[in-house]
Design a protein around this nucleic acid. Structure first.
Lengths: 340, 340
DNA sequence: ATGAAAGCGCTAACAC
DNA sequence: GTGTTAGCGCTTTCAT
C-alpha cells in the first residue's frame, strides 16, 4: 500500500526546498536542468501526482461542473449527459451528476451543496415542481455569487442566463403539418400540463399548425397527462370517446402506448391511424411498428451546454450578455406514419 | 453579486479571531454563548457557507465518490446510477459520473484523474475492452494507494475487492426452466461473446438448465452477438436457418429485436413462439406484446454498491476481508411467454 | 539557481 | 473564553 507521495516528501528526500520541487515539476526556467531532471525522475519513480484538492483551493477553481437533471432514467436526459460528459472531459472538466427527481427541495439542496466550492459552474434542467412553483431564488443566488449557470431544455424565461433549448414549438408545428400532408386531419395530441414549458410549446405548435391548415381545433382531441400512471387510462378514454386518424405524443412513451392501444383495437398502422412521438429514443426505434419521431439531438444539446458553460468559465470578459442556443430538430420518418 | 464570505471576513468584521469564529460556528463549548450567537447571526445574515474544498483538504476526504460505467444510455445502468445517487446523497456523498464508453484507455484515464484527491472511493463496472484485455493494473494501483473500490455487475475475479453482482447463471437457469415448463423445448439463445462475464454466465445457466431437463444443446441455436450493428442480421439468419419455439435474449434489446422479426414473419406470440429478455427496462414494458423479462433490480444494486463503498470509507477497521453481494433476480411474466 | 514565506479556507492543539 | 500557531498540498513572490 504505497500511499500517495507529496511534494514535501520529494523535497525532503532530495534535500531541496518544496518550492524548488514545485518549480522543477513545472519546468520553471529558474531551475537548473540538473535539478529539474532529478526531481522529475524521482517524481516519476514514486508516481507523484499533484493533489487536485490542494490545487483547487489554491486556484479557486475545481475543474468540476455539476449537472442537475430531473431524472436520469430517460433516454433524452441520458443522451444529454453523454454529450455533456464527452465535451467536459475533452475540455478537462469532470462532471458531477445530481438528480432532482422532479423535486423542488432536492433541486435546491443539490445546488446549495455544490455551490460551496465543489464546482465551478452549473448545468441545469428544471424540475417539474420548480416549474410549477415558479420559485427560482436558488438560481438567482448562485448567479449572484458569480457562479455561471447554463440552463437546458426545461428553462425559465424569468432567469437571465445562458440557455440551450430545442425549437419545441416549431418542431411540433412541423410535425403536425407533416401528418396533415400525409393525409391526416383528425390529429389527437397527447401532451403534458402547460406548466411544463416544453409541453406548452409543443401544444402551441400543434394548435398553430392546425390553424394554418384550416383545420378546426377540437379540444377533446387534446389530452393532458400529468403523471405516468394516468397515461394508459387516458389513452383508453380517448379511443373510447373520439375518432381520429393520427396521434401525436409529446414524448415517445405517450406515442408508443397509444400505438399499442390502437394495435389492440385492430387499427391498421399507418393506413388507418398514424403515430408520431417526440425524442428519438430506444422505444421509438424498436416499437412495433417502428415509430416516426421528432429527433431532439440530446447529445448535441449536452455538448453545446457544456461548451457554453466552460466558455463562460474560461473567459473572464463576462460582458453580462447571455445567449440562448436553439437546437434544430428533425423528423425521422419510420413505419408509423404514411410517406408524404 | 455578493461574493461568498469567509471566516476570515467574519472574524475581521466582528473583531474576533478566526479560530473563535470557527469554534463559534461549531457550537464549541469553549466559546461564550454571547459570542456564539453573535457569530452565528452574522454568518446567517451574510449567508456564510463553509468552503468544501478547504474542508476536503483539511480532512483528507472529499465526500465525493466516483462511479465509472461503460455506458449511460442503458436502462440497467441508469437504474444503477439512480440507486447509487440516492444512497450516496442519503449518506452525505456526491456522485461524480465517469463514462468509459467501453474503452480501456478511457477507463484508465478516468481512474487516474479521479484518484488524485478528487474522490474518496470508486464504484466501477468494467468496460468490455478491459474485460477483453484482462489488464487490471489501474485497479490494483488505486487499491494499493488505499482507495476503496467496489465493483458491480461487470467484475473480475482477479481483483480482490468488494463486489455486487447479479446471480446471472442462476437467473438464466431459472428462465430457461421457466420456458421449458411452459412447453418450449427448442430454445434459441441470443448472447454476447464469452469475454463479457455476464454473457458467459448467462450462457452457462442456459446450458445447465437444458442439460438438467434432458434437452440436447444445439449449438446452432446459440447466437453470439458482439456489436449492436450485427444484431438484426444475425437474428434474420437464425430465423432463416433454424426452427425453434422460444428465444432467450441476454438483454432486452436482443429479445425485442427477435420478437419483431418473429412478428414480421407471422408467428403468433406466445402461442407459436415465446420470448424472454434480461433486465426489465422500458423496452420490455412497452414492447408489443409486452416482454417477459428477468428483473435485475439495478436500483437496488446501485444502492448496495454505494452503501458498501461508504461503509468501507467510514469504518477504519479495515480487516482486509472483502465481500461479494449477490442480488437476487426474479422473472416478470408478461405477454411474450405462455403462463405455466 | 535556490529557498523562505505567505496564502488559499478551515480546524485544532495549545497557550494565555 | 479567546487567540496564536501550525498544518492540509500547492503556487508564487520576493529574497538571497
Amino acid at each position: 500500500m504505497k500511499k500517495k507521495i507529496t511534494m514535501k516528501e520529494i523535497a525532503r528526500e532530495l534535500d531541496v526546498s518544496i518550492s524548488t520541487v514545485s518549480k522543477a515539476l513545472n519546468n520553471s526556467s529558474e531551475i537548473s536542468q540538473d535539478t529539474i531532471d532529478k526531481v522529475q525522475a524521482f517524481a516519476k519513480l514514486y508516481n507523484y501526482k499533484p493533489n487536485n484538492i490542494a490545487l483547487s483551493l489554491k486556484n479557486k477553481k475545481t475543474k468540476n461542473i455539476a449537472v442537475i437533471i430531473p431524472e436520469i432514467v430517460h433516454h433524452f436526459f441520458t443522451m444529454i449527459i453523454s454529450g455533456i460528459e464527452h465535451k467536459a472531459n475533452e475540455l478537462g472538466y469532470n462532471v458531477i451528476v445530481c438528480l432532482s427527481n422532479e423535486s423542488f427541495a432536492k433541486e435546491v439542496i443539490n445546488m446549495e451543496t455544490m455551490a460551496n466550492g465543489s464546482i465551478d459552474g452549473f448545468l441545469l434542467s428544471l424540475s417539474k415542481e420548480t416549474l410549477l412553483k415558479k420559485d427560482f431564488h436558488h438560481l438567482r443566488e448562485v448567479i449572484n455569487q458569480g457562479m455561471p449557470l447554463v440552463m437546458f431544455d426545461r428553462i425559465s424565461d424569468e432567469i437571465y442566463c445562458d440557455k440551450v433549448i430545442i425549437d419545441d414549438a416549431r418542431a411540433s408545428y412541423n410535425t403536425v403539418k407533416h401528418l396533415v400532408y400525409s393525409g391526416c386531419n383528425r390529429i389527437a395530441l397527447l401532451t403534458t400540463p402547460d406548466y411544463v414549458s416544453v409541453g406548452k410549446l409543443r401544444t402551441s405548435g400543434y394548435i398553430n399548425a392546425l390553424m394554418d391548415e384550416g383545420i378546426e381545433i377540437d379540444e377533446k382531441l387534446i389530452v393532458k397527462i400529468d403523471k405516468i400512471e394516468e397515461l394508459e387510462e387516458k389513452v383508453k378514454v380517448l379511443f373510447d370517446t373520439q375518432t381520429f386518424d393520427a396521434v401525436f405524443g409529446v414524448n415517445e412513451l405517450y406515442a408508443v402506448v397509444a400505438m399499442r392501444e390502437a394495435h389492440n383495437r385492430g387499427f391498421k398502422i399507418p393506413q388507418q391511424m398514424s403515430f408520431v412521438g417526440f425524442s428519438d429514443g430506444i422505444l421509438s426505434k424498436y416499437a412495433y411498428p417502428t415509430l416516426t419521431t421528432v429527433v431532439q439531438h440530446g447529445y448535441e444539446m449536452g455538448q453545446k451546454a457544456a461548451k457554453m458553460l466552460i466558455d463562460r468559465l474560461e473567459n473572464e470578459d463576462d460582458d453580462g450578455s447571455y445567449k440562448t442556443d436553439v437546437i434544430k430538430t428533425s423528423i425521422l420518418q419510420r413505419e408509423s406514419t404514411k410517406p408524404i
